[in-house]
Amino acid sequence: MTTPWETQLKSLIQTEPARSPAATTALLRELVEHLRQHRTELREEWARRITEAKVLTAMSDAEIFAEATSVYDNYVAALETGTFEALQTYSRNLSERIIPRGVETHEVIGIVLLLRDVLARSLFAKYQSDFQLLNRILDAYEPAANRIANTVAVGFVQERERIIREQQEAIRELSTPVLQVRERLLILPIIGVIDPQRARQLTEQLLRGIRANRARVVVIDITGVAAMDSHVANHLVQTVEASRLLGATVIVTGLSPEIAQTLVKIGVDLGKMNTVGDLQGGIEEAERLLGYKVVPSEAPALISGIRDET
């Protein structure tokens, strides 16, 4: 059965040069019409194919169908208008919802490509009698469909990257705590590998911490640092000097034998640095500088507590 639209189309194709914008627009409109008409069965077919392909296992069938409906409608709308902003927003939104549930990149790309296949197949079925028209329809459909797939995939990956960046930020925040252990005494335990970026951030946090806590003495403990290169060592020296400009004395503790050897070998000037063997010694030295004195009380609470129980 030929609709008036199709007759018009055929004449258009014959008169207009191939791939002209007007012809493409007309073809796309024809296409959208078809997709709207067969919305129900195409959507079901798609959902069936998704289940069959065993992707999106993290989601229930009902959820898949609900999402499939919105994706389908957005897909058709993008084909119709040729603008992808709405689809972009939707795919970002969708990604936000499904990433925490463990949906993988290949699954998202997979389902969009499945939809592309399902729709292409229905176009084949519809226009199989007229090969030339089918060709033109596909010429109009494919670039648009590819762009849609691209948009959804990029949206998903961008969302993932945003989450990764946020998590990295959180880890970085957590990995350099500046702790106050006494009035005016800060401790900065450094654990793990120090790269230039982390070193810079560390210094920034320490200097801010000195200001915020009005610290006089800072103990930087690097027991947990396995290796140090000249760049990082120089940065450490700079941090010590910058802290002094803010009026705080820095004590560095926990230099491992390897790091001590490396530092001497690469010729870092540690003359300005106040170093103590371990964290305990560092805190004791800091207390001395601040005028604190730790005196054991007459009856140690721990021992008297044990005696009471027995």
Binding site: E204, L207, R208, Q238, A242, S243, L246
Partner: peptide, 10 residues
């Protein structure tokens, strides 16, 4: 001396 200034100086 501000923290940023201090680090820029060293």
């Amino acid at each position: 001396v501000q923290p940023e200034v201090a680090f820029a100086m060293v």
